[in-house]
Amino acid sequence: MEEIELVRLLQNGDRAAFKTLVTRWQDMVYNTALGLMQNESDAEDVAQEVFVKVFEAVNSFKGESKLSTWLYQITIRKSLDALRKKKRKKRFSFIYSLYNENDELIHDPPDFVHPGVMAENKEDAEWLFKAVKRLPENQKTAFILNKMETLSYNEVGEIMNLSTNAVDALLQRAKKNLKKYLSDLLKEQ
């Protein structure tokens, strides 16, 4: 089904078109959310929210960009909002118990390993995700879109409303910061 036709059907509240939309883009939305959230259940939660939002707000979609670009933008916004909310909760976690019934820390889950990483790279990827967590939001977003969604600088720029040069500069800064964070993390080890 063509994108324009799909949008038209969605704007008429067509449930079958909605199923097509979810099936076609669920991996893209989930994978992006997972890269940013670094937690599978949080990423699933965000991905569900994204599709609900799309169904409710599809009438405001003017078709000036690709549907996938719009989906990426909503996913990034929702993921970053959820991360901020989580951080706020963590800050106030001293008010209630930090541990669950199994004496495990509730707010510090074990290190994240992306399920799509090749087996031989898993250990290194674990370090990388630890460092990515420390990046500022815009650098983290550009890095995830470029490395995990393998988008070009041009596509990343479209999603983040930046020029290709700005994306290039952002990714250079991200790489520089990652090197620094990794060096610190390896020293701490």
């Binding site: 669920q26 994978n31 929210e49 990483v117 090197k179």
Partner: peptide, 29 residues
């Protein structure tokens, strides 16, 4: 080591949500 870590996402595959994702989205809707 840092260079190897930075290249660890090469060849990464997209992750998929669990089964019956659409059903859960519908419920949420």
């Amino acid at each position: 080591k840092i260079e190897s870590i930075l290249n660890s996402l090469n060849g990464v595959r997209r992750a998929s949500p669990g089964y019956y994702f659409f059903t859960r989205v519908q419920e949420r809707l």
